[in-house]
């Protein structure tokens, strides 16, 4: 029986010689157990080849992002476009204010920027008190 089982398993993988083929045929005709084993193995092989497996959606992108990061680590440090817009707008507003201050006060010292250039320090202090 052990020999027959060995031949049975090999028969799934490679063509048998005529004598082995005859032996297996005879064994299968004589033994229900061996026939069942053959059916089980065929079913198992069928189920194994039918297994469907796939990675989740976006796998390729994950791989390519990792590769791009590896190729060019600096380029991957991307500021979100919305932050860039806010930063540029803020910078433009500051420049406009500075130009405005320069034209009204004629200088860009800290008092002018703060809008207190027309006040003497003591007056400011008195006003505060």
């Amino acid at each position: 029986m052990k020999k027959l089982r060995k031949i049975l398993y090999r028969s799934f993988e490679e063509p048998l010689g005529s004598s082995e083929n005859g032996l297996l045929e005879a064994g299968l005709n004589a033994s229900e157990e061996l026939r069942k084993e053959k059916r089980d193995i065929l079913k198992l092989r069928e189920n194994l080849s039918a297994v469907k497996a796939d990675f989740s959606f976006g796998f390729e992108q994950k791989v390519m992002n990792a590769i791009r990061q590896e190729n060019n680590p600096v380029a991957t440090f991307e500021i979100l476009p919305v932050f860039r817009t806010v930063a540029f707008s803020g910078l433009a507003a500051i420049l406009i204010v500075l130009v405005g201050v320069y034209f009204t006060d004629g200088s860009l010292n800290i008092d002018s920027i703060m809008g207190i250039s027309k006040y003497a320090p003591d007056l400011g202090l008195l006003a505060f008190l």
Binding site: A53, D54, F55, F59, E60, M64, I67, R68, N71
Partner: peptide, 22 residues
């Protein structure tokens, strides 16, 4: 050419999935 490599990934993804999940 990263597009070429992306094509390789796409082509061999199912095979890779079957082997690794198995």
């Amino acid at each position: 050419d990263t597009k070429a490599f992306e094509q390789i990934v796409k082509q061999y993804k199912p095979m890779m999935a079957k082997v690794t999940i198995g």
